[in-house]
Design a protein around this nucleic acid. Sequence first.
RNA 1: GUGGGAUUGGCGUAGCUGGUUAACGCGCCAGUUUGUGGCACUGGAGACCACCGGUUCGAAUCCGGUAUCCCACCCCA
Length: 431
Amino acid sequence: MALITKKIKGTEDVLPKQSYRWQFIENIMREESRVYGFKEIRTPVFEHTELFARGVGQTTDVVQKEMYTFDTKGGESVTLRPEGTAGAARAVLEHALENEGLPIKASYFVSCYRYEKPQAGRLREFHQFGLEEYGTQSPAADAEIICVAQSVLDRLGLTGIHLELNSIGCPECRAKYNQALRDYFSQYKEQLCDTCLSRLEKNPMRLLDCKSPEDKLIAKDAPKITDFLCEECETHFKEVQKYLDSAGVKYVINPTIVRGLDYYTKTVFEFVTDCIGAQGTVCGGGRYDGLIEELGGKHLPSLGFAMGLERILMVMDAQGIEIPNPDRCALYIATMGDEAKRKAFSLLRQVRECGLIAETDVVGRGLRAQMKYADKIGAKYSLVLGDNEIAENKAKVKNMESGEQTELALDDTFAEKFSVLSLTGDEAFQI
RNA sequence: GUGGGAUUGGCGUAGCUGGUUAACGCGCCAGUUUGUGGCACUGGAGACCACCGGUUCGAAUCCGGUAUCCCACCCCA
């Protein structure tokens, strides 16, 4: 391969053969968020760098070492979005959507960019479906978005994904808790691994789910966040659980889920699977009551989640879930002669107007080769169009599986009759 | 950023301790006479053996570096 260049590290192409898989999951996500009352928001792929610095958090890994940041010709610093929430929040503020009534419920599909080392389930360009809900502090909203996520996963047919739930409290209870953690782990400074030592300063909650066995042992008796929640946060957390119980959503409380973005408060959750490698979080989210203020707006409690599309697709693969392919050709017209080629165009137009996929030869193959091609693309029916057919104004439509042929008139009733014929055969060819 | 594994036609692979036309399966294209696919048969296209450099009379095969991919850490979707 002497190509002058290849795709950028950590990026992936979705080829024509594969795109139906993406469309399938996206459609379900769209439909599901729609019935919950969310409307799609679309924001630019890049933003002023300070938006992410402030929104996502200066101290986070994402901001400190993973952003694609560059200066424009005009000298401003812009950044390819590393996640979807900051841009959506910015748009909500900029257009003062809070004046149109609360809550604001938005869904999005975005590509995101993080300069990381690629591995299973982690790319430098990846795609997310997400939900945003602004202007509600009610635990009902927390439960609502979790329900959407659950519905999506259910409708996709995924199994073995469990919901882990936690509350990291408001900034006040979290500050107390972080201090308690620092105090506790400081006693064991000599025994902690290097990464944990740095976590002790940066983000003590991360100490809780260190992989090293020794650290795990120490972490076992560490203080629990649930003992540090203020009354409001605790009630909120309990209420969320009650709503989930009522909706029949199963979850496990996991006090070690932290989330790596600064804006989270109170409820945090992850949908996790173990079938796609180490990066098993397929959906993550929670509440971010302080984000809008951080970005210069008024107090507007908010929440949301993001789902990794590549990871969802990986789970579908791992679990052998079949995705219906709607892209198979319904009718292939093989032609002989120039007049037949032209006639084919008029028939094809009729058929396509019925929403059926119809094709003909556009590379100049012989009849036999055209039939081979029809077979190769999995055409359900074929039709040979030559001088005889044109003279008699009728042709035989052949079922490619059974070999059975049905004669149809080549007039303006053709498409209608053909679609009846194809629908009676196989439901896969329904529109 | 730190580790481990990999890199041979479109895809999946063989090529053992260096020796001269780089093999196989699948796929692709064409044909197997008069207007019809799936099978079979015949033929064909397609590889500077990831890249750069080194050792050698000689390297896909050995050594070094780089890149990319895969996997893990960190972190996250």
